[in-house]
Design a protein around this nucleic acid. Structure first.
Length: 228
DNA sequence: GCGACAG
DNA sequence: ATCTTGTCGC
């Protein structure tokens, strides 16, 4: 699919923070997940020596979970991991993978935060703006925000708030496992984001599209070791 | 100064 | 995230 790059990635932390605060103003935090027939999942794996990134995107039927298409991109690391600036590390590789994708999914789920971020622009939110389609953040751990206890049953959730604003939900995607942190990225509401994630989750804690993307990039990384 | 801190 | 063996538990 066509990706419109609207800014440079070669910036300092201070410039990146300012960019995030400006970009967040363009986010649309409304929209529902109804009608999502084709959903994509994204994940990135880092080579052990830490110089290469493997970005993968898996497109699947939102109902049957049948894989429709997948794409990936291998890139050299050009930005360190710094909490709050993940999109500047993984973003370029993720977008390159989307450029190789023919299918335009109805929504995309990322392995990371949406607006549940210090400046309201986590990976999923940032990518949503550049892709122009609904995106959701599904993180395995918390970055910012406060929340109460989550029920033990699958499907239970509790609000995640930050600076007095509801930025997402802590969701029990699977009974007996730690909850996941779901927040809207772009063109979707917090509630719809949770509905979409839960509809894509059944047997495992991680949403199936993201889980498949994780499997893809890990396979790619292992195969790269064989070539040495 | 101290603790927190997506992947 | 990655490194890394075995091991405790459903």
């Amino acid at each position: 699919m066509i990706v419109h790059h609207r800014h440079s990635w070669d910036v300092s932390y201070q410039e990146a923070a300012g960019l995030q605060e400006r970009l967040r103003e363009d986010l649309v935090l409304s929209g529902d997940a109804r009608g999502v027939r084709i959903v994509a999942g994204v994940d990135v794996s880092c080579e052990k020596q830490g110089e290469t990134l493997f970005a993968g995107v898996v497109v699947m039927d939102a109902v049957t979970f049948e894989i429709i298409e997948h794409a990936h991109h291998v890139a050299l690391v050009s930005f360190p991991y710094v909490p709050g600036f993940l999109s500047f590390r993984e973003g370029p590789a993720v977008l390159a993978a989307f450029e190789k994708l023919e299918t335009v999914p109805d929504a995309v789920i990322f392995d990371g935060q949406g607006i549940a971020h210090p400046r309201g622009l986590g990976l999923a939110a940032h990518m949503g703006l550049l892709l122009g389609i609904p995106t959701v953040g599904s993180a395995k751990t918390r970055l910012v925000g406060e929340h109460g206890d989550v029920g033990q049953k699958r499907g239970s959730d509790t609000p995640l708030t930050h600076n007095g604003r509801r930025i997402g939900y802590v969701v029990r995607s699977k009974q007996g496992t730690r909850p996941i942190f779901v927040s809207p990225g772009h063109l979707i509401s917090p509630e719809a984001a949770v509905k979409l994630v839960l509809s894509c989750t059944a047997r495992y804690r991680i949403p199936e599209p993201v889980r498949q993307a994780h499997i893809l990039v890990n396979r790619l990384r292992k195969e790269s070791y064989q070539d040495r």
